[in-house]
Simulated assay, not measured.
Amino acid sequence: MRKKTDTLKNKVVFITGASTGLGEKIAYEAAKKGAIVVVSARREDLLLQVKEKCEQLSSKPAFAFGLDVSDPEQVKKVITEIYQTVGTVDVLVNNAGFGHFEEALTFDMDVAERMFRVNVLGLMYVTQLVAIEMAERHQGHIINIASQAGKMATPKSTIYSASKFAVIGYSNALRLELKPLNIFVTTVNPGPIETNFFDIADESGTYLEKVGHMVLNAEVVAGRIVSLMGTPRRELNMPALLEIAGKFYTLFPRIGDYLAGDLFNNK
């Protein structure tokens, strides 16, 4: 696609779930690099504000599309509009998703189904349609925002962790399939980020305070993600402490259970 020393100038970067939080920050960082930013989300009022700021930062046109990724017909319609209005997509960032912390025995399974439709199936719907076009050009980059929860599951994250385990598994296989077509696939696995994600995920409102030493800054994470665009990076794991813990979780199962069930159980 491009060398690491190149810039994103005039590249089309399409970001889902970009009305707030990490997706919003990724949009701004890409705009600063001169990208033509395309943002989508359900909350169109906020999305238009993001679009306007991207245009100010890049001095280029930006585009906003209302989209619920859990609806495959909407996905088809919006991606067709993007191709007709903007052009081909150089970088896709699958950021749309949500979480909810609740014990498995009392979890509302309607919420669980919605979570999988957004976090997993929605990501797959968007990826397939964008990747088909990338394959025709033999270039592109797909960045899937997963989570450290997809590396190391903890209590009260059964459904959310399962959805992110699925994203990681999908991304790993997709990377191998698309590599011969010169399409890069990167999985981003952040720990807790200080965004409005926890307004829904954590009804107690105390989780971020409990894990204060591990909380990531959204702008910093976004900057790291944008710096990887167009490069064949397999994964980005943040913060370092959770990356190390995740390796222990795999290599030393008993220690892993202690880390997940006791040391990192802050929900």
Rank of each mutant, 00 (worst) to 15 (best):
E177M: 04
E177P: 02
L178A: 07
L178H: 05
L178C: 01
L178W: 03
L178V: 11
K179D: 11
K179T: 12
L181Q: 12
N182C: 10
I183A: 06
I183M: 05
I183C: 03
I183E: 02
V185E: 06
V185T: 02
V185N: 03
T186H: 01
T187G: 04
V188A: 02
V188L: 04
N189D: 08
G191E: 05
G191Q: 01
G191N: 08
G191W: 05
I193H: 05
I193A: 03
E194G: 04
T195Q: 07
N196C: 03
N196G: 10
N196V: 13
N196M: 05
N196Q: 13
F198Y: 14
D199V: 11
I200D: 11
I200G: 05
I200N: 11
A201M: 04
A201K: 10
D202G: 07
D202I: 07
D202V: 10
S204D: 13
T206E: 15
Y207I: 04
L208N: 07
E209Y: 13
E209H: 14
K210I: 05
K210W: 00
V211K: 10
V211L: 10
G212P: 00
G212H: 15
H213D: 14
H213T: 12
H213R: 14
M214A: 12
M214F: 15
M214K: 12
V215Y: 01
V215L: 05
L216M: 09
L216Y: 02
N217D: 13
N217C: 00
A218G: 00
E219M: 00
E219P: 06
V220T: 00
V221C: 05
V221K: 02
G223T: 00
G223Q: 00
R224M: 12
I225P: 02
V226L: 00
V226S: 03
L228D: 06
L228G: 03
M229H: 08
T231S: 13
T231A: 12
P232V: 08
P232K: 01
P232C: 10
R233M: 13
R233D: 11
R234V: 08
E235Q: 15
L236S: 10
L236V: 09
N237E: 14
N237W: 10
P239I: 03
P239D: 03
L241M: 11
L242I: 02
E243P: 01
E243M: 14
E243W: 12
E243F: 15
E243C: 08
E243K: 09
I244T: 14
I244Y: 14
A245S: 10
A245L: 07
A245C: 01
A245W: 06
G246L: 07
K247M: 12
F248M: 15
F248S: 09
Y249G: 00
Y249R: 08
L251V: 11
F252E: 10
P253N: 06
P253Q: 05
R254D: 14
I255M: 13
G256E: 08
G256F: 00
G256Y: 08
G256D: 03
Y258T: 09
Y258C: 11
Y258G: 06
L259C: 07
L259E: 09
A260L: 01
A260S: 11
G261S: 01
D262R: 15
L263Q: 09
L263F: 14
F264C: 01
F264A: 07
F264H: 04
N265Y: 09
N266G: 03
